[in-house]
């Protein structure tokens, strides 16, 4: 529901949770992170109906990909580790799902974000072109998957030059709101952020999973993931994600989707104080499913009341002291 700080009668309506993400209005700052719940129209729409401000589809490439064999996604005690390996049905099929998702989300005010990846900057651009008929609200460019280095090489997100090349290639074919998803593994994430913004990004998702990490089973005497290594997510990486958002917010002047280990309203507020406009929610769905969106929104609302905060705009980046 729309939540402005004054109604027509001028009465106090409670804190303002809506935000502007690269020109797209979100009813609340929570964004279903890419890769969670796949790309099926039904599940994306369900997350939207449950109270996400925006939902992001799983990353797709031009051609379908099978991804890695199981085990691929595990709970390791302090979050998740995954090496799904960018499995996806290919851009053509993804486009149909996104069209259906858009239809199912019609009238809810929930924004739909597509996500793409490719082996080369040109392949990223082609994937975006293939998705254009879906008329999504934003496109996220995933240059930071840590699980496919063997096939796709060093992630583009680790270095300013390659990250900018992908951004430029996509920018040349797509004029709508464009997010680029950075990696917490980049040694100089602020430099990558600067070059991506100069290349035309309208916003940044900060960031992807951390690592890669590894879990070894003592009795099997081998890594559990079939890919041996996988991206680490969940509460364990939150302080690192917050630091990344902080550094990026200091370096560039575009909206940030702060993503990494957020599970509570307080976690979300921390991201916003670090400089995030919106907040990605991913691994948190492992416990409570889509109800996480309603809970975190309520907690954020309560916290804002307690702390006397009327709008998220008031506290965005306030921790930069």
């Amino acid at each position: 529901m729309d939540r402005d700080d004054r109604s027509n009668t001028g009465a106090w309506q409670g804190p303002k949770l809506s935000v502007d993400l690269a020109g797209v209005r979100l009813q609340n700052p929570l964004v279903l992170a890419s890769g969670i719940w796949g790309s099926a129209a039904g599940t994306l729409a369900r997350a939207g109906r449950a109270g996400a401000g925006a939902v992001t589809a799983k990353s797709c490439s031009i051609e379908p990909r099978r991804g890695h064999p199981n085990p691929t996604v595990l709970q390791w005690g302090h979050g998740l580790i995954n090496a799904v390996g960018l499995s996806n049905p290919g851009a053509e099929e993804e486009c149909r799902e996104l069209q259906a998702a858009k239809e199912q989300l019609g009238g809810t005010g929930v924004a739909l974000i597509a996500s793409v990846f490719g082996e080369t900057p040109e392949a990223f651009a082609q994937a975006v072109l293939a998705l254009l008929p879906a008329s999504v609200d934003l496109v996220e460019v995933n240059i930071s998957c840590p699980n496919v280095a063997a096939e796709l090489g060093r992630p583009f997100a680790l270095d300013p030059g390659p990250a900018a090349s992908v951004t430029e290639a996509v920018r040349s074919v797509y004029s709508g709101p464009l997010l680029v998803k950075l990696s917490p593994n980049a040694p100089e994430i602020a430099q990558v952020a600067r070059s991506v913004v100069e290349a035309g990004a309208d916003g940044l998702t900060v960031g992807n999973t951390l690592g890669p990490g590894m879990i070894i089973d003592l009795e099997a005497r081998r890594p559990v993931l079939s890919n041996r290594v996988g991206g680490v997510s969940g509460p364990a990486i939150r302080p690192i994600a917050v630091r990344c958002v902080y550094e990026v917010a200091a370096a560039v002047d575009v909206p940030i989707v702060g993503t990494g280990g957020v599970r509570t309203g307080a976690d979300a507020m921390e991201m916003i104080m670090a400089g995030a406009t919106a907040v990605g929610i991913g691994s948190a769905l492992e416990d409570e499913g889509e109800e996480v969106f309603g809970r975190i929104t309520r907690e954020l609302d309560q916290l804002m009341r307690q702390l006397g905060i009327k709008s998220l705009d008031e506290i965005r980046g306030c921790a930069h002291v």
Binding site: I36, A40, V73, L74, L80, V84
Partner: peptide
Amino acid sequence: KCGFGVCGNCH
């Protein structure tokens, strides 16, 4: 893939 409601593979 996951078995616990995260990956969306079994929708």
